[in-house]
């Protein structure tokens, strides 16, 4: 009997060991390093314990806080558009129409492209002087497009790139959720005379909240730590206008070699991510509870 209780643990043990090695140990290491002053390019490359000084410093570090603010702005902007477009596409792709399987496949293609390649594609597409986008914007609308100089254009360019890349993920996940919804509530609503909009807001949306939570959390976490696509397209420029927190931390750690401070920034970003996700969870589940009540 005792032996049978242990069997699940034996079966789980490889997964637990792997999670410990690739997940928990690096996190603990980063947490420990965040309490040290450590820069191998410094006059002394020794690690010096400085307790919470790195965390105290980052609270007053305007450059870092601005990069966090940019990340939050970027994450919520992309999430908003991906959510709206993704939901509309999921609702459309649920309906039956000619060539639906073909559209589903085409729509999913961006998902299989590596982020670094997405960045390269957009760079080729948008670089001033050579790219077709600036060329045609100038040719057809007289609009001057140069994200190397214009901060607004650079921001919206990275937002657009993320929407292009990740909306299919939102669509696919929501489509799976929509397909799994029970049909009875819809039939009852129709018999009661509810119109499409009423059905959407009073039946579809409340029932989809668990799926929406998953989508929102995954996309939010991804956007808050975005680096590679943006690195390829703008490298954080013009100036520091697209230097999101991930890029700021990367530069601090791998260019300037502030390992201790960089670790503290990483922990802080993780904390911010958890807090935002928790707040969203509370807001969304309270809505669900209200509608259930």
């Amino acid at each position: 009997m005792v032996g049978s209780k242990r069997i699940p643990w034996y079966l789980l043990s490889p997964t637990i060991v792997i999670l410990l090695i690739v997940g928990l140990l690096p996190f603990i290491y980063v947490l420990i390093v965040s309490f040290y002053n450590w820069n191998p390019l410094g006059k002394s490359d020794e690690m010096t314990f400085i307790a919470g000084d790195n965390f105290r410093k980052l609270v007053f570090d305007e450059d870092f806080l601005l990069s966090v603010w940019r990340s939050i702005k970027y994450a919520f902007t992309t999430l908003f558009f991906e959510f709206i477009i993704g939901f509309l596409l999921a609702l459309s792709l649920r309906e039956s129409f000619p060539f639906r399987p073909f559209f589903r496949i085409v729509h999913t293609l961006p998902l299989v492209v590596a982020p670094i390649v997405v960045g390269s594609i957009f760079k080729l597409f948008t670089v001033s002087g050579f790219g077709p986008l600036p060329h045609f914007l100038k040719e057809w609308f007289g609009y001057s497009f140069n994200y190397g100089r214009d901060a607004e254009q650079a921001f919206w360019m990275i937002v657009f790139m993320d929407i292009w890349h990740w909306t299919p993920f939102v669509t696919l996940t929501l489509l799976a959720g929509l397909s799994a919804l029970p049909k009875d509530p819809y039939e009852s609503a129709k018999m009661d005379g509810a119109n499409g909009i009423q059905i959407f807001f009073h039946i579809t949306l409340p029932m989809m909240i668990p799926v929406l939570l998953v989508v929102v959390f995954i996309r939010l976490m991804d956007s808050l730590k975005a680096v590679d696509e943006i690195w390829m397209l703008t490298s954080g420029g013009p100036g520091v206008e697209t230097r999101l927190a991930g890029i700021h931390i990367w530069r601090s750690v791998f260019e300037s070699r502030f390992y201790g401070y960089g670790s503290a920034m990483s922990i802080f970003l993780l904390y911010i991510t958890i807090v935002i996700c928790w707040l969203l969870y509370v807001v969304m589940t309270s809505k669900q509870n209200e509608s259930n009540a």
Partner: peptide, 23 residues
């Protein structure tokens, strides 16, 4: 300079901003 990367990285943002016309 043994601090080459860090030194240059400290100067970078201001040069980027000057090129972009922000400073």
């Amino acid at each position: 300079y043994p601090f080459h990367g860090a030194g240059r990285a400290a100067i970078d943002p201001f040069i980027f901003k000057a090129l972009a016309g922000e400073l």
